[in-house]
């Protein structure tokens, strides 16, 4: 048992119950349906922007990309234009591959010795795969939810929904993304618990967002497939929020408020947590700079003069010895030894 994930799990359950009880027993629909969502959104936007601005306030004094391939040097040596970019286009490509395909996580190659000393290579990319599924499923789920905030629902969203529901089973049709998200988030959690070295480094703040997302996914799936939430009422509520004319339809249940509250918590928590890697990945100087460090002078805004040991000081200290050894000097020694030179 580990206090880090137990505490996180309990927190998420309690949060859900607060919203459920708050709306179903105490009748705080206004708080959970209007006030908190608005607040959360404000905190998210303001927090996110503040965090990014805070990063941006610190300069990048040196051009220090981590180079992961051949540099551009001599014209006849092919350079790694993406893994070690030397142009802005290359940097954009590198960032795109990193952000869209998780290039670095894909780098885990694993060798194995088979009988004798023969080498073979194996695919070892579970982390990469789970991370990719998790992020893309999450992205799809978020985009899919835009239909609650847009009237009429734009065509691309409808297309997305039909792609997402390509399995065409169940009623309402099963959307892959929700389940993929849940499966991936569970995998990421189990990985944290069962791989000792990952468990060792994991903090409560690593488990908490996982449980939060799990809670959101589970409550969402429940609403869609089991309790069959009144979608029309929900949309009335969300459209009310987006048009700043909030309404609270009676037919929206506690499960929805629980779901909605967890989403609000996630939004508000986001800027203060590691989830800010969403913004940070764009700001990482080891990835977003071209390896042109010797080609174009990079300016350090706080570069200040330092005390150096000048050649003059050096020669003053060693002049006699330098002359004796036949090394050229700037100033001839004062007396005595000068004839020794030449």
């Amino acid at each position: 048992m580990n206090v880090n994930y137990i505490a996180s799990l309990i927190t998420v359950v309690v949060l859900f119950l607060i919203a459920y009880v708050g709306t179903q027993v105490v009748g705080l629909q206004v708080l959970f349906g209007i006030v908190i969502p608005y607040l959360a959104l404000v905190v998210f936007l303001a927090g996110f922007i503040a965090r990014v601005l805070n990063w941006a306030r610190s300069p990048v004094p040196f051009r220090i990309p981590t180079t992961c391939g051949q540099q551009k040097s001599l014209p006849w040596i092919p350079s790694a234009t993406v893994d070690n970019p030397s142009t802005t286009g290359g940097v954009i490509a590198r960032m795109a591959v990193e952000i869209l395909l998780f290039r670095s996580l894909f780098r885990n190659t694993k060798a194995r010795l088979k009988g004798g000393e023969r080498l073979s290579y194996e695919w070892e990319k579970w982390l990469w795969l789970a991370a990719l599924i998790f992020h893309y499923a999450f992205f799809t789920v978020i985009v899919r939810h835009f239909r609650f905030f847009l009237e009429p629902v734009p065509a691309p969203l409808k297309w997305l929904q039909s792609v997402d529901g390509f399995l065409q089973i169940g009623l309402p049709g099963v959307l892959i993304s929700g389940f993929a998200l849940l499966a991936a988030v569970i995998f990421l959690f189990l990985r944290r618990v069962f791989i000792p070295q990952v468990r060792y480094i994991s903090l409560a703040s690593d488990y908490f967002p996982l449980f939060l997302i799990m809670g959101i996914a589970v409550s969402g799936i429940f609403m869609r497939y089991i309790t069959k939430v009144d979608v029309v009422s929900v949309k009335a509520l969300t459209m009310g929020l987006i048009t700043f004319k909030p309404v609270l339809p009676e037919t929206v249940g506690g499960l929805f408020y629980g779901h909605f509250f967890l989403v609000s918590v996630l939004l508000a928590y986001f800027p203060f947590s590691k989830l800010m890697h969403l913004g940070g990945i764009f700001m990482s100087p080891t990835r977003n700079l071209a390896n042109t460090s010797r080609e174009i002078r990079h300016i350090n805004p706080w570069n200040y003069p330092v005390k150096v040991h000048t050649y003059e000081e050096y020669e003053d200290e060693f002049r006699e010895k330098m002359v004796e050894a036949g090394l050229p000097v700037e100033k001839e020694p004062a007396t005595g030894t000068s004839q020794e030179k030449e």
Binding site: K110, A111, R112, L113, E122, I195, P196
Partner: peptide, 10 residues
């Protein structure tokens, strides 16, 4: 120990 035992890459 988990790493020493499970990482098969020599």
């Amino acid at each position: 120990s988990r790493f020493f035992a499970n990482q098969k890459d020599p």
